[in-house]
Design a protein around this nucleic acid. Sequence first.
DNA 1: GTAGGGATACACT
DNA 2: GTGTATCCCTACT
Length: 193
Amino acid sequence: MTKILPQHFYSRSALEVAPELLGKILSRRWQGETLSGRIVEVEAYLGRDDPASHAYRGKTPRNEVMFGPAGVSYVYFTYGMHFCMNVVTGKVGEAGAVLIRALEPLSGIETMKRFRKKTSLYDLTSGPGKLTQALHIRRSENNARLLEEPLWISSDGFQVSRWIQTPRIGIRVATRKPYRFILESIHLSRRNS
DNA sequence: GTAGGGATACACT
DNA sequence: GTGTATCCCTACT
């Protein structure tokens, strides 16, 4: 039995929400099928105090959902071909988000393989651009409430025994801040970090 | 290691 | 308005 995470789960600092998202299940309803995976890697992004955050220089058309109510998705397009999905956290007016970086595939695996044009489980959701492709998440899923279909996060009671904190990946500033949170999993975006 | 690709933000005119 | 440096990446060599 799974329970969708309530809105108030997200109304805290990204640094509090991020580790608690580990072990939860991200689900995507698409054409009558549920595609889902367990979250094994996330990164927290803050606002004014975080040079690596899109919100560092204030509100823009792209990042404005980071300043809005918590519990919605922030999906953006980058490097000319990839989407990345974040979960908005914190209070209205204060920017914050948690980037979902990797999942362990759970259901809808055949469909994910089709979307990814890959056959190995590891290639499906082991990176932020990969998992959005596998779950068919794109710009139309920006600013979507994560409390209901077609995109939501739930708990199945899975207990996380141990998580690890490391520096974030793929950024060039604030690289010393340990804002990446991971489980021990073979589905991480990097195997050894 | 690096090519690929498009949006974005910001400096300028 | 135009120019351009950058980007929370992936897939390939």
